[in-house]
Design a binder for these strands. Structure first.
Length: 107
DNA sequence: CTCCTGACGTCCC
DNA sequence: CGGGACGCCAGGA
């Protein structure tokens, strides 16, 4: 395959986020090779089928959900809490739960 | 080809 | 610490 598109890279990376960890859009963008493609990451999640990607493990640099709908944010929070992620005033401790991309392997 | 939009990030006030 | 403005990448009309 020729130079996987950011879409494929991002998609692959997100699908490999380990349980109990979270990744930020910016971090994913970095892992994908484009530190400035944070927006593209969000676009991928929105464009791709949310049922095949752990979208709930993707949050912004603030350690918060970026959903415009409060209801959606709480849903994500609940899903992460179910995985062991601890929320502090609706904020995640990135120093502890941020995935560093250890087990990441692109093909 | 040009313009608009988007689950972001960083800088400045 | 909160809010506003600009920059980035990719896709769709």
């Amino acid at each position: 395959m020729t130079i996987p598109t950011l879409f494929q890279k991002i998609h692959k990376i997100i699908s490999q986020i380990p349980k109990g960890k979270v990744a930020t859009y910016g971090h994913i963008a970095v892992l994908a090779g484009n530190p400035r493609a944070a927006r593209t990451v969000g676009w991928v999640l929105n464009s791709s089928k949310s049922d095949e990607l752990p979208w709930h493990r993707v949050i912004n640099a603030q350690g918060r959900s970026s959903f415009p709908d409060r209801n959606k944010r709480m849903l994500q929070q609940s899903m992460l809490e179910a995985e062991g992620i601890i929320f502090n005033n609706e904020k995640v401790d990135l120093d502890i739960f941020l995935w560093n991309g250890n087990n990441l392997h692109l093909s």
